[in-house]
């Protein structure tokens, strides 16, 4: 039987470490803690300076993360939550689980940032990614995409954060015309997937011409694979942003250490890890700037972003419009 062995090992490990060093528990989304995400490097860098143990627990994606916190409530063992985005922060703030961070910082974001509870650690633009060889002249706006005969894969806003991002993008860019845009887009949508991975898989296997992803996605193919063929299409109405944030839980008994972690999060040691592991822009540009290859990325002329309250207010109506247009 392997189980008793596994379980007792799991029980013993923290006991040995907590003899005198404190442990900071950070809840985040699953891909952050994966062997290929920022997690391992972040832990090493923070443990080198904090005289503590950093324990990172990954749960699904941002929305699943918040749901888990809400389930756990004030009894949550988490000290810090890292990985919510601005579509979730209103609900997170409303839960009353978060404490003010009390940190003043300068950010390299295209928009001003002002929030007592949450600090951004990275950000990106949503965009439709395509292959330059297969599609040399991509559409330059939603209108052009509607008029094309291209097929796209998007994600379901009910189960995916980028999927919800597209809802907000179209709402922010087209306001009351959003239903008409969705109706026009419906024939272009080959399919809607549960998560980003499935959509992106459809794109890389050539099943669709374009996929809803990020402007930073081509950087992975360029830097990790030496493949310059992927690109993000610039849309003239501007691109909606995803800003990923972290916050301290009020119930944490490690408030000082949690604050130390958030300060570390905004330092070069953390921010340098982000671009080539999370494939997003760092919230505070490190001294050495961005890695080679990021300069080739498309940078939208206009950045779109609802405030957390606006996003929360728009959400249900936007989902209803989306459902109505695509259910036909």
């Amino acid at each position: 039987m392997r189980y008793p062995v596994l379980i007792s090992a799991a029980l013993l490990a923290p006991a040995m470490a907590t003899a005198d060093t404190p442990t900071l528990t950070v809840y985040t989304y699953d891909s952050f803690v994966s062997d290929w995400g920022p997690g391992p490097a972040v832990r090493e860098a923070f443990e080198a300076i904090c005289d503590c143990r950093l324990e990172m627990v990954g749960t699904g994606d941002g929305a699943a993360l918040l749901a888990r916190l809400q389930l756990e409530g004030a009894r949550s063992p988490a000290d810090v939550v890292l990985g919510l985005d601005t579509n979730l922060t209103a609900r997170a703030a409303e839960s009353g689980l978060f404490a003010p961070h009390g940190i003043a910082a300068e950010f390299d974001l295209p928009v001003a940032w002002e929030d007592d509870l949450f600090l951004p650690f990275d950000w990106g633009y949503f965009a439709f990614v395509h292959d330059r060889e297969r599609l040399p002249e991509p559409p330059g706006s939603f209108a052009e995409l509607i008029d094309s005969d291209l097929s796209i894969a998007i994600q379901d806003p009910r189960s995916s954060t980028p999927g919800l991002g597209l809802l907000m993008w179209i709402k922010a860019a087209h306001g009351d015309d959003a239903p008409a845009i969705w109706e026009g887009l419906a024939p272009r949508v080959l399919t809607v997937t549960r998560g980003w991975s499935e959509s992106y898989g459809l794109f890389t296997s050539g099943e669709v011409d374009m996929v809803l992803s990020y402007t930073t996605s081509p950087a992975y193919h360029l830097i990790a694979e030496g493949d310059a063929s992927k690109a993000a299409a610039e849309f003239s109405e501007g691109h909606y942003m995803q800003v990923e944030v972290a916050g301290i839980l009020e119930s944490s008994d490690q408030q000082d250490l949690a604050r130390e972690f958030l300060e570390f999060m905004l330092s070069d040691a953390f921010q340098e890890i982000i671009p080539t592991t999370n494939w997003m822009y760092p919230a505070v540009l490190p001294e050495d700037g961005l890695p080679d290859g990021f300069d080739t990325l498309m940078v939208p002329e206009r950045a779109l972003l609802f405030s957390a309250d606006e996003a929360a207010a728009q959400r249900d109506a936007a989902l209803a419009e989306w459902l109505a247009a695509l259910s036909r």
């Binding site: 009910r158 189960s159 399919t191 997937t193 549960r194 989902l319 259910s327």
Partner: peptide, 26 residues
Amino acid sequence: FAVALTLGGGPRATTVELAIYQAFRF
């Protein structure tokens, strides 16, 4: 649910399990 959604082509193919998913996390 994941199969139905991906091959169903969109929210027309919403199953009860997906509705549960929505209720829980959305």
